[in-house]
Amino acid sequence: MSVLVATDVSVAVDDGREILAAASIEVCSGQVHALVGPNGAGKSTLFGVLAGDLAPARGSVMLDDAPLRDIRPRDLARLRAVLLQSNTVSFPFTVEQVVRMGRAPWARTPAEDDDDRVVAAAMAETDVAGFATRTFPSLSGGERARVALARVLAQATGVLMLDEPTAALDLKHQEDVLRIVRTRAAAGAAVAIVLHDLNVALAYADRVTLLSHGRVVAAGAPAEVLTAARIEEVYGQPVDVFPHPGTGVPIVVPRR
């Protein structure tokens, strides 16, 4: 079922130049949908439109069959959670306090009774419970990224939006995050995730939307979208794409 749908959305900058042109995407429940493309392709712009942080000049965005622009901010926060690339907290809040901020949309509702359980589960899932009492500014970049993800998970919404959630993480925690994403999708969540690593998209995504120069080049199953010819065309880099000898999942290797 489509949960978050953008149709022919365009975004222009002050000089009138379009940085996103007539882009369409469907993010469905039970699926991980990856947005990929080179730098400047329009991934983050489309992500911002889907999140409701950017208003398109043209086109429409629907969340659960309602126009996104008509949903009140508090109601929107109960429907979708957003993890941005930058996670800055200037005040010395503890890790647990930051994660607990994800429960704010549920204040004064029956769901508030679950706050302690949900916060504890989110911290355990992201491997941050061990430093729950440390202050957020004292953490490393990777630790901050995991705490920020825990806050988003604690928000407990049906739509998860993650902008490059693995960028600051080591190999183990990258894989941990991606497994969490797959688990949430398997439980019924609709997940939109911006990725730079095409091999991650091939291994973990159900669907891929490939962007270039502000336009959608292709959308569909990862192996159908991320062919060697299309990757070379969009990225300007020759690659080989072949099945992994153990799993059969396609892998992308640059020609060197």
Score class of each variant (00 low, 15 high):
G220A: 08
L171K: 02
S90C: 11
I71E: 01
D197E: 12
L35C: 03
N39H: 03
R17W: 08
A203N: 11
H33S: 13
L46Q: 05
E232V: 04
P56W: 13
V9M: 06
P137S: 06
E112K: 04
T135Q: 08
A186Q: 11
D8N: 14
L46I: 00
T88L: 14
G52W: 03
T94H: 07
R151C: 02
H173I: 09
T135I: 01
T94E: 04
P137I: 08
F131G: 02
A148H: 11
A219F: 05
R17I: 13
V225R: 02
A81D: 05
A6M: 00
F91S: 13
L54Q: 12
A145M: 11
L210N: 10
L226K: 13
V118K: 07
A229C: 06
D115K: 14
R117F: 14
A167F: 00
R78L: 10
T126N: 06
T183P: 00
D53Q: 11
M161F: 06
A145H: 03
S2D: 08
V194F: 00
R144Q: 13
A6Y: 01
H173F: 14
P243W: 06
G48F: 01
S138V: 10
D170V: 13
V217P: 08
P38T: 00
P73L: 01
T88G: 12
I251F: 08
Y235F: 15
A34D: 10
S138M: 10
G220P: 07
T209H: 06
H173Y: 14
D53I: 06
A124V: 15
A12F: 07
A77P: 05
P222L: 07
L79A: 08
V225G: 05
I25G: 03
V147Y: 02
T109W: 08
L153Q: 05
A122V: 12
P245M: 07
A218P: 11
L198C: 09
K172N: 09
M123F: 05
E164D: 11
A145R: 11
A203S: 13
N39A: 01
K43E: 09
L68K: 05
D127S: 04
D127K: 02
I180G: 04
E125P: 04
A104W: 14
E233V: 12
A187M: 06
D206S: 10
G188C: 13
R215D: 12
R230M: 14
A218H: 15
A111F: 03
G141Y: 07
A218I: 09
V234T: 02
A150S: 13
V95F: 11
L195E: 04
V225Q: 05
T7P: 02
V49C: 04
A34T: 09
E232L: 02
L149S: 09
A218N: 15
E143K: 06
M161V: 01
E175K: 07
D75F: 09
L160T: 14
V239E: 00
S2Y: 01
V252N: 00
A104T: 15
V61Y: 12
P243Q: 04
G246F: 08
E112G: 12
T135N: 03
I25C: 07
L79V: 03
A22Q: 12
K172F: 09
A121C: 12
D113K: 15
R134W: 05
I71G: 01
R108K: 11
L46S: 02
R58A: 12
V241I: 05
D75M: 15
V61C: 08
I71S: 03
R230W: 11
A150C: 04
A185D: 06
S44Y: 00
L169I: 00
A218R: 10
G188Y: 09
D163A: 01
L83H: 09
